[in-house]
Each structure stands twice: as C-alpha cells, then as structure tokens.
Design a protein around this nucleic acid. Structure first.
Length: 645
RNA sequence: GCUGGCGUAGCUCAGCGGGUAGAGCAGCUGAUUUGUAAUCAGCCGGUCGGGGGUUCAAAUCCCUUCGCCAGCUCCA
C-alpha cells in the first residue's frame, strides 16, 4: 500500500492503514465492537480523541469505558458539559478552569451573585438535556489570535487570560455545538457518550489559587461511566461518613469539643484518655529504648526567647501572647526553643552527641477559624516532639533511626496506606532560605539516602521545603480520603544559627550543631482522630478503652461475674461488668455498639462449670472457655498488641 | 479569613405560606430474673445556638453574632 502507516496494538497485532486515517476507523477495522466502545486512544502513550487523523506509524491503545484512563476523560468531559449548561442558563457568567480530580471534577465560574443549591438542580437538569442532544465534541486547533478573539468576543476575560499565557502560536480548543472551551483534551466523542454524573457541592475558590485574587464560584461534581459505579461511589461516601472521628468520638465517649470553651480545643474523656495514655506509654518506652532523653519545658516563656528564635518575626500571627508585670509572654506554639535552651544550659562536648530530647509537648497555635477540623486541625495539641542535636557525620544514621521508628509505629497500628513527600528547596532562590548550599545538600542527601535504603516510594517536592531546612513528611488519610500530615523529619539550619547552638569539637573549637526536628504521631490529637477512623472506632484490644465486659445472665450470677472481672483486672486488663437488669440480648447489643472487643457471658451453666462463654466483637459466639484460658487469651492479645480480632 | 450551607430535648430527626413545641432512642422510676444485636409500663427532659428587629403574635420573616459542615486559602 502506498503512503501507508503501520499501527501496532498492545497485544502485538499490526495493521496498515492509509495515512490520515481517523483513529475510530482504526478501532473499527481491528474489531467492530472496539470501534463502538472506544472513547479515546493512547497514541504512543499520549491521550488523543477518537477523531484524530493518524499521520505516522504508531502504537495505539484504545481507551474503553473500563480502561484506567477512562475515568479521567469521562470526568473532564462532564466538566465541559457543566460549563456548557451554565453558559446556556447564565450567559453572563465567565468561565474559569474545570479539570477532572481524583474524586470527580469541578468547574470555576465568575458571577456577581453566587449560585444557590437550587441553581445546581437546574444546571444538572440542563446537563442531562445537553447530554441527550448527543452533540459531537470536536477538537479545533487554531491560531492563538483567533482563539483570543473568540473569547474576547464572549467577554470571557478569564479564558483570554489563560489563552494569552499559553506558549506557542497554535492552541487547541474543544467545541460541542456553540460551546467552545480552551483545552488540551482528550475528550469523549460526543455528549451522548457521557456516563453517570451528579453535582455535589458549591464552594468558593480563589482564581488561580491566590487569596489576592477574586473568589470564583466552584461547582463540584463526580462522574462515572455507569450509573452503578456512581451509585457505588455515593454509597461508599455515605459509608465513610460513619467512620468520621467527629461522629464516633462523641458517640463512643472518647472526646468532645465544647462550644463554651472555644473551637479547636479538645476535651479528652475518660475513654479517650485511656487510649491516649497507652499511646504515650508506648511512645515513651520506644523512645527510651532508642536513646532519647525525656524532657519537660514550660508552656509559657518571655517573648525574648521567641524574639531570639525568630518566631516573633515570622510566626507572630499564629501565637497567643499576653503580658505579666509589663513583660510580654508567649504561650508556646513549638517546643524547639525550649529544648534548645536545655541543650545550651552548659557546654556540650562532641563526645555526648547525638543529644536527643523528646517531649510530649502541648502547644497552642492560632489557626484561622475556617481550617479547624475535629481533632485533625486544632488550636491546642500535644506534639510527640523530639530534637536531635548532632554532628554532620552523625546525620545519616540519625535520619535512618527516625525513619525506622516511624515505620515501626505505622506497622504497629496497622497503617498500610500513606504517602511520603521529600520537600527540598528551590535552588533558584537560595536567598529565601536559612543556612548554606553545602548544608542543604548534605541534608537532602541524607534524607534521600535514608528513603532509598528503605525502598520507600516518595514524591520529591521542589521548593516545598521550609525556609529553615528540607524535610520528609508522611501523609496519612482520613475516612473520606483527605490527607493529613503525620510523621515528619525536618532539618533546621535556622535555630542553631539564631540561638548559637554549638558543640565543642575534638580540636576544642566550637562548631554549630546539626539540628533535626521530628515527630512520629505528629500530634496526639490528630493521630488519635486518625486511629478512630482507621479502626472505625473498633480499637484493637491493646488500645480499647474497655477490653472485655462480663455479662451475667441474671443476678444469680452477678457475684461470679464480678469474680471474673477481678481475675482479669488482676492481669491489668480493662474489664467491666454489666449488672443491669436487662436481657442478655440487650447487653450484647450495647456492648457491640460500644465496640468492646470481648463479651464474657456468665450464666448458671458457666458458674457451675467455672467457665465463661466468650463472644468476640468480630467473630461472635466462640463458646465456653475455662476462666484461665480466657484470661490468657486476652492477655496475649494485649501484650502482643495484636491488631485482630 | 473567604464562598456556600446548616444550628429544634443528651442523640437522630419532625414541625418553618407566623397563631404560645413533637416522635424515637437515651435518662429516671417501677414491674420482669431473662442464654448471644433492643422486655414492658410510667415519668422527667427544650433559653427552638445567642442578641436585636418586624408583628397583636416569631422555632417560622429580617439583621447581627457564635458554632458546625463542605471547599478555597493557610499549616514558617
């Protein structure tokens, strides 16, 4: 065939086509069904529309509704559908940007008066209408000037701004009927191919993400290839809400936030405090074993300290300050200056490095009201903070030690889903950072090497370092998938300089220490909130506020039940007795709702045989068991910190 | 802080084109002595988030303030 091109499919099959053949014809030729089902294609790995005329040999993978890439295309095209509907209903609205996201899509609009929830219904109805029209969606490549003219004509000045910023002379747009958007694609072949969708919420969002700019009206929605997938997603969201620590915390009597006391301040109830103290004890043991020294520092200090540390300059807006006898004081927002004062209280020889000071230090920070969130983002919290003061030679092994400690904790609590970020400086602007290039390089090398040695996959974030040093952050996820920073390891080139933190080297010269901040839980509040969601409130036995509850069938066996309680308490187990005048079914139901790991039923039969009928929260009735056997079973689960049952 | 939404009993919710608050669960009291996810009956319980206004009359309409929810921004 003259002027033919060769197309290779992922399965290795090859065919020739005339140059300029449209991708949909290629799909059709390989397989009629594929031709009907293909929504887009990956040409040499790049996403393309099904209408693309092919000009050269290529490897092509067709995207069908089931393909991993399909969801993004469905969502992106649905966001265009949203903008199209809004333009039809409200021609005066200026359109911004509308990408697909991990959860769905959104589109930002500029409009003098905000949309209302009723508008959303109207818009969604119009979207269905446009979908039903089955309009072809075609890519248009045109000179930039032409696109600019088009959007100018519509008064879409935000699009004009976006197109003008785009490099190159030719820009791509997508048109469906009389609606055209500036976009790189790819898109579905027509509006009729759009799947199931639903508009979900309305929010403000700053234009181009800057607080300095005007606020847009953002409409969020989600979309899937099929109605079933959409329904499953919505059901999953409902299910996830049941794990929300803000619902479970008060329901299980773990903690509360009291309006009288103020937002962002956590009251730990007895049940929550049991868990907290286990977390604290575990943490202290693990840290002592690893050569940390525990310290305690005051909650307030003269502002002189915070002036020296630099916090008063760059962290003032987040600090609570007050006066005593005309002297300014600060409620500590961080523990590092305090730890550094202990270090500096006398000369330190290189022989005693590394010094590792650890403290469960309670800090208070003013957080803007809109960012507060249950236990995850609060104004008063306890950091499991530690600061390591060491020599440059010790840095690598210290970082490795911290990372291993993090991983050990994550494993203990059964966390398998987390993401690791390595934040480094922006080499183009060294003036924005404390310390010198050599120090930053040394620090980055140590962090990178420690990550690689542990085969951790991580995302390198250029320019995301704090001004005082590079860092590793581990992000954990809440019930509905929002990320929260957990463990962190951060170098600090600022404080040693500002507070003159040195050690005496072997040549008796004074050398600046390398300082590392690190936290494993991050904050006890946030970690606990995360744990509640992670376990959906059903704590493993070693953490459960009540580990077992004895349920006498009648008051004839109440004394026997108390005897069992005494036996378990003798082993340090947290055991209660439900002596209420209720039927056993009711007692079980309540214990189950309280998510108590084990129920020990004690009726006449058990009292007679000196046994107990064990019921597990997870597995139900396990049958009768000797008292010692039951006790030993629970004790073992407790000691081993077992995650199940 | 910004945009939008929501605040009714301890909890979940009804009532809201204005006409002096209602259910279930929980709690309390009594009866029942019970075998693996709710025994029955009675009783108690509300400044309708707070303040101001409109009105003869406000949970209901308006303003304001506090809190909560979603998102944005922020989280050196």
């Amino acid at each position: 065939m003259l002027d033919a091109i060769r197309v290779t499919l992922p399965d290795g099959s090859v065919r020739e086509f005339p140059r300029g053949v449209e991708l949909r014809a290629v799909a059709e030729a390989f397989n009629g069904d594929l031709g009907r089902r293909a929504i887009a294609a990956l040409v040499n790995g790049a996403g393309k529309d099904i209408y693309l005329p092919l000009q050269a040999d290529a490897t092509i993978e067709f995207v069908t509704p089931e393909s991993p890439r399909a969801l993004e295309i469905y969502r992106h095209t649905t966001s265009h559908l949203l903008a199209h509907a809004v333009k039809e209903l409200f021609p005066e609205v200026k359109i911004g940007v509308g990408p697909a996201t991990d959860e769905g899509f959104f589109y930002d609009f500029e409009r003098p008066t905000p949309f209302t929830p009723e508008d959303l219904e109207t818009i969604e109805a119009r979207m269905r209408d446009i979908k039903a029209r089955d309009l072809p969606i075609r890519r248009i490549e045109q000179p930039k000037s032409q696109a600019l003219g088009y959007f100018r004509g519509l008064g879409d000045n935000l699009k004009v701004e976006l197109v003008a910023e785009k490099g190159g002379e030719v820009v791509s747009c997508y048109r469906q009927d009389n609606f055209m958007d500036f976009c790189t694609g790819p898109h579905l072949p027509s509006t009729g191919r759009i799947g199931a969708f639903k508009l979900l919420s309305l929010a403000g969002a700053y234009w181009k993400g800057s607080e300095q700019n005007q606020q847009m009206q953002r409409i969020y929605g989600t979309a899937f290839a099929t109605e079933e997938q959409l329904a499953a997603h919505l059901a999953m969201l409902e299910e996830a809400k049941k794990r929300d620590h803000r619902r479970l915390g008060p329901a299980l009597d773990l903690f509360s936030v009291e309006e009288t006391a103020g937002p962002g301040l956590i009251f730990w109830h007895p049940n929550g405090t049991v868990v907290r103290q286990i977390l604290e004890d575990f943490w202290k043991d693990e840290h002592r074993r690893r050569g940390y020294q525990l310290v305690t520092t005051p909650h307030i200090a003269r502002d002189e300290l915070w002036r020296l540390s630099g916090h008063l300059d760059y962290y003032k807006d987040n600090m609570y300050t007050f006066e005593i006898e005309e002297a300014g004081y600060v409620i500590k927002p961080m523990n590092c200056p305090g730890h550094s004062l202990i270090y500096k209280s006398r000369l330190r020889s290189y022989r005693e490095l590394p010094v590792r000071y650890a403290e469960l230090g309670t800090v208070y920070r003013y957080e803007r009201s809109g960012v507060l969130h249950g236990m995850m983002r609060v104004r008063g919290f306890t950091q499991d903070d530690a600061h390591i003061y060491c020599t440059p030679e010790q840095v690598l092994s210290e970082i490795e030690g911290v990372l291993d400690l993090c991983l050990a904790f994550l494993r203990t609590f059964g966390y398998e889903r987390y993401e690791v970020d390595l934040s480094v400086w922006d080499p183009a602007h060294p003036e924005k950072y404390a310390g010198d290039a050599a120090g930053w390089q040394m620090a980055e090398d140590a962090l990178t090497r420690a990550l690689r040695d542990r085969a951790l996959t991580y995302t390198r974030r250029e320019g995301e370092a704090a001004f005082y040093g590079p860092k590793i952050d581990i992000k954990m996820f809440d019930a509905i998938g929002r990320p929260w920073q957990g463990p962190t390891v951060q170098f600090d080139f600022n404080l040693p300089q500002r507070l003159s933190i040195h050690y005496v080297a072997s040549d008796s010269s004074q050398k600046p220490v390398v300082m590392v901040h690190r936290a494993i839980y991050g904050s006890l509040e946030r970690f606990f909130g995360g744990l509640i969601e992670h376990y959906a409130g059903a704590f493993p036995l070693w953490l459960a506020p009540v580990q077992a509850i004895v349920l006498p069938i009648t008051d004839r066996t109440a004394a026997y039940a108390r005897e069992i309680q005494t036996l378990l308490r003798g082993q340090g187990l947290r055991c209660e007795v439900d002596e209420r005048n209720e039927k056993i079914g009711a007692k079980i139901r309540e214990a189950q709702l309280k998510k108590i790991p084990f129920m020990l039923v004690a009726g006449d039969r058990e009292a007679q045989a000196r046994t107990v009928a064990v019921r597990s929260r997870k597995e139900g009735d396990l049958g009768p068991m000797g008292l010692e056997a039951a006790r030993d079973r629970l004790t073992r689960l407790d000691r081993e910190r077992a995650l199940e049952p």
